[in-house]
Write a protein that binds this DNA or RNA. Structure first.
Length: 486
RNA sequence: GGGCGGGUCACCUAGAGGCAGGGUGGCGGACUGCAGAUCCGCAUACGCGGGUUCAAAUCCCGCCCCGCCCUCCA
């Protein structure tokens, strides 16, 4: 039974979706006025894993992630570049989606944009005015927070506290400091749309209420985002939707923890923001994903050089284990038989799988799931040390291993390619005529084998080092030599 | 000040009443010409002070420290 920590109740609750085999989830996307950074990546990797596990459990997941393309910061940044705000944000939206793809985050089913849902936002705003929850003030429309009794229930604050923290900024025409804008009257040079209250543009929070309920209906199952969105963004989304429709907006609210960099908050003033595209130049995307998976999604995480190095080594171990298992799984049919050792091995694999599912069922506990993955690695390596192995058992274990890894966004990378040019050079050096990369490597290994037999270790090591320099590692196992690309 | 979450080995991270788990690193052993990989073993940890309990990292009280939010935030 899957249990999910619900921010609303501050408890883990059994997960019961609206429809038995389908899950409807919405995750707040980016405001696209600059490149995606690793903090965004953390959130989207976390929800990618959540979505993958739901699918692993057999749910069909409809995953919607919005793009905020109307916003003060976009307007300001576009104006500085003398660009149209919508074009400007579209440029960054494309880059951000590309970055996430490069990181290995699966695409959402749909990415609705705020600018394409103005009608819906006007409709919802009108409904809120009609129902007495919102008021017009000189071309602006504000939500009257005190009218919504349950305001504060998500962030766990009472109205007194909220009022204490609220302010009226210059230019705002709201009656109470805690009220928030549903619609803002147009200022010169800003993007604007026609509305019953004059030309203007929507406030930020309304887009998510509108787009989520449009594509998923309400209530829907899961609404996610970073913890920083709990207040006021998600609090306001609840107020808007529940005041307007008179029913529950979302059943499970999920929030991912914030990401620090070398122990410090990421911020413009410190100047330590790391963009996704820079991060993946330094670190393999899979290493970054492993790093994220090694933290529980609700805990704060610290993107440090040392932690990433740890992750890098751990990922290497997973990859080698996968290759060893693949190699054994491919072996000839003579070892199709399952003997006692094979049965024992598969029992261990089943245990790991059970541990994995228990961990993930417990509010997507990926660090514990990783333990299960490493249990499987150890058992697999141990089994593979035995003289004869059952290829059938290995195929079965491999399948389970990859299924588990895939949920954690691991081991899904295409095999890396050999640098053909460099390899050709090496082939020429040793007079190898073969053309195919694999054949060349095998020929080199053969030369090295002979050298080793003649105790010409200088030559043997030279070949091994030459290959190592281009990312091909040799491994002597008994009389055999295996190779892998790293 | 208010809300929420934390402080566990050298480093990272699980665990939330019953021998403290995993990863990375270290040391030793097996294997090896060496290297690598792998396996086995070893060492090292519950912020501080009280309390409850047969039993506390886990529950309660107090203190210290850290992170996020409190109308820009993933």
């Amino acid at each position: 039974m899957l249990r999910i920590y619900n921010t609303l109740s501050r408890k883990k609750e059994p997960f019961i979706p609206m429809e038995s085999r389908k899950v409807r989830m919405y995750v707040c996307g980016m405001t696209t006025y600059s490149d995606a950074h690793i903090g965004h990546a953390r959130t989207y990797v976390a929800f990618d894993i959540i979505r993958r596990y739901l699918e692993y459990k057999g749910y069909e997941v409809n995953y919607i992630q919005n793009i905020t393309d109307i916003d003060d910061k976009i307007i300001k940044a576009a104006a500085e570049k003398n660009m149209d705000p919508l074009e400007y944000s579209d440029y960054y939206a494309r880059r951000a989606l590309g970055d996430m793809e490069a990181l290995g985050v699966r695409k959402a089913n749909f990415y609705p944009k705020a600018s394409e849902h103005i009608d819906g936002m006007i409709e919802l705003t009108s409904l809120l005015i009609r129902r007495g929850y919102a008021y017009v003030a000189d071309g602006d429309v504000y939500f009257s927070v005190e009218k919504f009794q349950e305001y504060g229930k998500l962030s766990g604050q009472d109205m007194k506290q909220i009022k204490a923290g609220a302010r009226i900024k210059p230019g705002e025409k709201k009656k109470k400091p805690e009220d928030f804008a549903l619609w803002k009257a147009a200022k010169p040079g800003e993007p604007k749309w026609k509305s019953p209250w004059g030309e203007g543009r929507p406030g930020w929070h309304i887009e998510c209420s509108v787009m989520s309920s449009l594509y998923l209906g309400i209530p829907f199952d899961i609404h996610g985002g970073g913890q920083d969105l709990i207040f006021p963004h998600h609090e306001n989304e609840i107020a808007q939707a529940e005041a307007a429709y008179g029913k529950t907006f979302v059943n499970y609210w999920m929030h991912s923890g914030m990401l620090k960099v070398e122990g410090e908050k990421m911020s413009k003033s410190i100047g330590n923001i790391i963009n996704v595209r820079d991060a993946i130049k330094r670190w393999d995307p899979e290493v970054i994903r492993f790093f994220f998976a090694s933290y529980h999604y609700r805990s704060p995480a610290d993107f440090s050089e040392e932690a990433l190095k740890n992750a890098e080594n751990a990922v290497k171990r997973l990859r080698i284990a996968r290759e060893k298992l693949e190699e054994a799984a491919r072996r000839e049919a003579e070892e199709e038989r399952m003997d006692e050792e094979a049965m024992d091995f598969l029992k261990k694999v089943e245990e790991a799988k059970k541990k994995f599912e228990d961990a993930m069922d417990d509010d997507f506990n990926t660090p514990r799931a990783l333990e299960a993955l490493f249990d499987l690695v150890r058992e697999s390596n141990k089994y593979l040390m035995e003289g004869k192995v059952s290829s059938k058992a290995c195929r079965s274990a491999l399948e389970t291993f990859l299924k588990m890894a895939n949920v954690l966004t691991l081991l899904q990378e295409e095999k890396k390619k050999v640098d053909e040019g460099a390899l050709r050079k090496l082939a020429d050096k040793y007079g190898i005529k073969e053309a195919e990369s694999e054949k060349i490597i095998e020929a080199l290994i053969e030369i090295r084998r002979k050298a080793r037999m003649e105790k010409n270790y200088a030559l043997a090591d030279e070949i091994r080092d030459g290959l190592k320099n281009m990312g091909i590692e040799l491994e002597d196992v008994g009389k055999e030599t295996r190779w892998r690309i790293v």
